[in-house]
Design a protein around this nucleic acid. Structure first.
Lengths: 142, 142
DNA sequence: TCCTAAATAAGAACTATTCTTATATAAGAA
DNA sequence: TTCTTATATAAGAATAGTTCTTATTTAGGA
């Protein structure tokens, strides 16, 4: 069950287990898609009407710092949060602001090999994000 | 001269030539780096103290639509504007919020070839942006 | 020179996010 | 279990980058 999965992720992270964190964890795992804070708020406040907006941002930030989720920036400048931890890149639709995960191990390897050959002076690489911008059809909105 | 270059870019674009547009064009060409709207404002208002903030955004937006410049978002979520039109990717420093252009034709070719082989279903690629996030040293701030 | 659509100035409005402070609570200690 | 205390949360004010509104000005064609 998603609730148990969420709870165990929290336990492993070392974060205090609170109802708010469980609710947001559950929302992230259920929604799956790259949710905005606002969408998460809508989802979560159905059952937890008093959950404050600031708390949502606090919790999402805490999850980011523990590596449970990752921030993804959209074309339209709103932060979205990604629960997928497996290495992947993103397809950005520039019309509907939808982001789709793009898994491609071959591509990952290609890039990794490429940059390990290169030596970027004065720059140590932490991660490489490939934004594939284009047009997703049919459009999805959330 | 930069002023002439700016003016001729404007003429080619078909945009009306106004003192404000010339000033911003000149600023972009002089600063070169990925400027924030605020930095451009500071630069431009030295000689044009009445240039309104909204006008700067309008003009930058107009330039973007004509393809003269491109928007680039930083790690800290502030919009920056890039005058470089040659194909390139970006090095993002996650500490000093500096963005450096990264030119690499071999990489461009590699990616282009890779995705022309692939067939992403329901998605037509317009452009591929590689964000190379890491640590730029020494740090630059602006 | 005149005309008109387009551009600008000024500043209010907006919105995603962060901050502040008082209150509540998780979870280890006794 | 109850107590303790550092941590988390609620509520809403504050912030900041950006957009919007409206009156005024201006570029460039007629």
């Amino acid at each position: 069950m998603i609730k148990d999965k969420g709870r165990s992720i929290l336990t492993e992270s070392g974060l205090k287990i609170t109802p708010q964190r469980i609710a947001i964890m559950e929302a992230l795992l259920t929604i799956k898609d790259h949710s905005t804070a606002e969408f998460i708020k809508e989802y979560v406040t159905k059952n937890n009407p008093n959950l404050a907006t600031g708390t949502i941002y606090n919790i999402l930030e805490a999850f980011c710092q523990k590596g449970i989720i990752k921030k993804v920036k959209t074309e339209k400048d709103i932060m979205r949060y990604d629960v997928e931890t497996k290495s992947h890149n993103h397809l950005y639709c520039d019309e509907c602001d939808y982001i789709k995960n793009y898994f491609d191990e071959e591509l990952d390897r290609l890039l990794k090999d490429y940059f390990s050959k290169k030596n970027l002076s004065n720059f140590s690489i932490k991660e490489i994000n490939l934004q594939i911008v284009g047009n997703y059809s049919p459009h999805k909105n959330n």
